[in-house]
Design a protein around this nucleic acid. Structure first.
Lengths: 210, 210
DNA sequence: GCTTGAAAATGAACAATGTTCAAGAAGAAT
DNA sequence: ATTCTTCTTGAACATTGTTCATTTTCAAGC
């Protein structure tokens, strides 16, 4: 029950190792991609046995899912840092920040969106919920911009916008598919928002409507 | 040199088996996902040895890539069947057809977009080219709708639209992520196009602009 | 400090799966 | 019929996820 004061030496080591394993796994995924992640590599880099990895995370998916979980958290933090002064600017800021984050951690994001579980075990609900929370960050600015829209419409719209921007960015950063230069991709996202917001009847605050 | 008339018995068997292997592989990917594709399962279902699979396709990626290649081809055929009478209707038709195709062959499309090569061997150029050809189908209607836009802008726009629609559909069909009901997804794609085309200054032909 | 019991760590062994290759079989060429 | 080429085979190998009996480590009680 009391879980703070008594940090046994054993628990400390366990916790330290847990963090170390996650850091190593994340580093491998980030630099060489999810496919290159091997239990033995993790164990060797962490200076422990493969059994310890299993003892801590249950199975291999457990390691991956924990890394993915932390990726969404980091993303949410970054997106949460976008200024909420002007709703239009906020929407642009969210898209731009998502692009930055994706460009910096492309392989981690791919791990989050593309990893399939063994057999057909369900993807953990909490990660799903986290992703939804992340793109729920668009709700407030959208509500301010479309005061007459009901909640369902706002939710649908934010999902649409998120998915669309995600598509543009993820395919744009896919070297093999299209290979858009990063600076151009940024412009592409901006122009996309320009057109789409205009189509929704939203005009940028700072700019004249000509 | 002469490659048509002399169809040796050997070549016939080889070709038949090749088709059979591909059909089996495609069927497994389509029903159980790429992760469930195993060489031994293919060999057993095709009534041959694993060596024969390797002999025909080089390695495992070879099988997957060939299936992916045929998936893009099938997609291109389907998209090519969209009527080109009215450019606006054509754009809606392309999106709708993409949605249909994706819904019917979700796992095949995921295999196409998510499969990563072993190590970091490059993804085959021809598949890349085929995908680009597929979404180049949007060029003609866009040119008709935006006669003043230059080629670069058209290309950029078609890429953006394709990526956005792809994002909406692929995330929308991802049970684990959002789980949008198919009929609602269709409406979502339509509304997306409504807004975006309006933002580009394009008004539907059949409908009054009110 | 020693004993004891619980928790964790170990790593060898196992299982699943991609890959290779020497030997054999099958078809084509002469 | 013989030879030659090509394909096929499947056992063996390599890689990698997973398990588990054994050992080690640590905390608690005396």
């Amino acid at each position: 029950m009391n879980n703070v004061q008594e940090e046994s030496l054993r628990d400390q080591k366990k916790f330290r190792r847990r963090l170390q394993i996650l850091e190593i796994a994340r580093s491998i995924i980030a630099t060489k991609g999810l496919r290159s992640l091997k239990v033995r590599d993790i164990a060797e880099a962490a200076g422990c046995s493969v059994g310890s990895v299993y003892n801590e995370f249950g199975d291999f998916d457990g390691v991956i899912l924990t890394v993915n979980r932390e990726t969404v958290q980091a993303l949410t933090v970054r997106l949460g840092g976008v200024p909420a002064d002007d709703p239009v600017r906020q929407l642009y800021g969210l898209a731009e920040t998502y692009l930055e984050f994706f460009a910096e951690h492309a392989n981690l994001l791919r791990s989050l969106f593309e990893h399939r579980m063994e057999d057909d075990r369900p993807y953990p609900d909490d990660i799903l919920q986290m992703v939804m929370d992340a793109f729920a960050l668009m709700h407030p600015p959208l509500v301010r911009l479309l005061p007459d829209a009901d909640d369902v419409r706002i939710a649908l719209l934010s999902r649409t916008l998120f998915s669309a921007v995600h598509g543009i960015i993820s395919l744009g950063l896919e070297e093999r598919m299209v290979a858009v230069p990063p600076q151009m991709l940024r412009q592409q996202v901006e122009q996309f928002l320009d057109a789409h917001l205009a189509g929704l009847g939203i005009v940028p605050a700072g700019a004249p409507s000509s």
